[in-house]
Design a protein around this nucleic acid. Structure first.
Length: 300
DNA sequence: CTCCAGGCATATT
DNA sequence: AATATGCATGGA
């Protein structure tokens, strides 16, 4: 079972081009890199100020930029073009998704707020640990803790133009042998127990990504809930952002309140495996706008 | 200073 | 099953 998404919203990913040492995908719209990287699903992408974004992903220090509807990724080997197409969900038909979501006026309001958000397919272990860190935490500090985790225990994969080392997210085995005292420099508080438990379960094979991907979402969720520090919200975030289960979505008290206020009858137009994506638009709208649109919205 | 952050574990009702 | 409380830390 690969990504779970309705057939209506599957397309063939564009073929990669290779130009100037970059992996290039054309026709990627809709995609807004700033909105996508900064909507609370990823914690390592940093804007360089000129429209480029830097991160270390899958062991490569990469640079992503958008030129119209051309996505350029530098720093990754050609052989990983398929990985990057999946990372940016270029095989998901966001045009069709938007069309379906726009059938509802309230969903239309959320979508209009940040139409370039895509739900990324991020690496499993990094997503699991990052969202354990996110517990009762704010995004700025989450980013800081994740950076310190990489800086302390991640493999150096190069250095940036200022000579600062680029470090990968630590491997499960690199964390599995650590004690809470070793993680004290992270200043992650009570979350360190969860970080270590997650690393040990993954490192030992008890929690296996391949197995999780092969099992139904409900079973994978049950397995994730066994990890210390992983409750319903974080499990759903990991399913959505780290295991490509676009039909799953995080539902905590807050988002439930926003959802119910917006959609007392339940999420519309979202039954074909994209409720997680719909949720991300709702979440971002409610977080940044702070207001809940009424059920009656003006037509386009 | 206070309030709270993409919650969870645990105890109590 | 539902609700209440403590929690490390530091942004805003």
């Amino acid at each position: 079972m690969d990504s779970v998404i309705g057939n209506d919203f599957k397309i063939a990913a564009p073929e990669p081009l290779f130009a100037g040492g970059a992996i290039v995908f054309e026709g990627v719209a809709p995609l807004d890199l700033a909105a996508t990287f900064d909507c609370g699903q990823a914690f390592r992408w940093r804007p360089r100020g000129d429209g480029c974004f830097n991160a270390v992903v899958a062991g490569d220090a990469v640079n992503a930029r958008l030129d119209g509807d051309r996505l350029e990724i530098r720093g990754a080997p050609r052989g990983k073009a398929k990985f990057w197409a999946e990372y940016f969900a270029l095989d998901v038909d966001y045009t069709a998704i938007h069309k379906a979501l726009r059938a509802d006026a309230r969903m239309r309001a959320c979508l209009a707020f940040s139409p370039g958000i895509r739900v990324l397919r991020q690496e499993f272990f990094e997503t699991l640990v990052s969202f354990i860190i996110s517990q009762n935490n704010n995004i700025t500090r989450i980013k800081g803790i994740v950076e310190r985790l990489c800086s302390c225990f991640g493999e150096t994969v190069g250095e940036d133009h200022q000579g600062v080392p680029d470090r990968a997210f630590p491997t499960p085995s690199a964390i599995a042998s650590l004690s809470p005292e070793d993680l004290a420099p992270l200043r992650a508080g009570y979350r360190v127990a969860g970080i270590i438990d997650a690393a040990r379960r993954v490192d030992s094979g008890e929690l296996d990504e391949t197995a999780l991907r092969a099992m139904p979402t409900a079973d994978a969720r049950r397995r994730l809930l066994e990890v210390h520090g992983v409750g319903p919200k974080i499990a759903d975030c990991v399913l959505l952002f780290g295991l490509g289960r676009f039909e799953s979505f995080p539902v905590d008290v807050w988002i439930r309140r926003a959802m119910v206020a917006l959609f007392p009858e339940g999420l519309p137009c979202c039954t074909a495996g994209i409720s997680g994506i719909a949720q991300q638009y709702i979440f971002h709208y409610a977080r940044n706008c702070g207001t809940i649109p009424q059920s009656k919205q003006p037509r386009d």
